[in-house]
Amino acid sequence: MAEKTKGQTLIFRNPPHIVAHASIVGPEESKGPYSEYFDLHLEDAKYGKDSWEKGEERMAANAVNLSLDKASVTPADVDLMLGGDLLNQLITADFVARDLDTPFLGIYSACATLVEGLTLGAALMDGGFADCVVAFASSHYQTAERQFRTPLEYGVQYPPYKQYTVTGAGSYVLGWLGGDVWISHATLGKVIDLGVTDPNDLGSAMAPAAAEIILQNFKDLNRSINDYDLILTGDLGITGKKVLTALLEEENVIPEDKLMDCGAEIFGYKEEYGSGGSGVGASATFFGSVIIPKMKAGEYRRVLLIGTGALLSALTVKQKESIPAIAHAIVAERIPGG
């Protein structure tokens, strides 16, 4: 049975296993250095459909179905699906769930949605309410760009620290048997807002929330950076990662090369992608397809995965609101003896 620390961290007495994972990425991500790690690749952003939104829906649905296949379970075996995306009304996740015979909870915390899903799923399982949970999330460059920014062909100049939304979907099957990695702890984040207003610099807006959750996790579990082999943030990008490093160093936490960011990595630090990737697709695909295999291979034993979400909408930006951010963390460990 789960246990809560005095702070914000949940300790799972029966850590749920990540039994299977599947990922799909878009055309740009397929040109990146991690292309071969991902299961499927989109040749075009519409994925053979007649709109970007339908393309994203097909992408997310295929990720879920592939993860179920890999785990050898059917939708009817799944007790609960937790899913979300970046579009209004969680429309991608809703439409994915429409086609599956499984109870569904739609969740949103922007790009922290995947980690929120894994946290809730693990908590429900350890609490005895489920034995098999699917957590999935997706983001899509074209659909997000037109919801949050200006039209793609509009000739405006973006600053060098702008991030590009990752087209990608990842789905994780949580169960009691199989897999190489389990979720041992989860730290629940607070909404943090240090007053960043530039919607082109989401990495900097999210970095304080990431720093906050890392320090909280260390405090609650009485751990230090030495207890982790890798601190993996979701989509701070290159600039946000630097800001996070600066914040941590002021608190005497020196991450050195233990800090990695899915968004910064996924496009391979190319200038044309500015500060790198953003969007929940970054952590949803990268953690499962790149990091879990490396954990299996023994490269990392214990990883702190931090989902970081910028809680803005196109309207709040126009109303000159600042950009609040949230971060949640889970501790993923290689299953002993596994």
Partner: peptide, 19 residues
């Protein structure tokens, strides 16, 4: 909270790290 900074203090860090 663990991170206690004012907007001005934080903006200084951002300006330093931003390209």
């Amino acid at each position: 909270k663990n991170i206690n900074k004012t907007t001005d203090e934080f903006n200084k860090i951002v300006k330093k790290e931003q390209p």
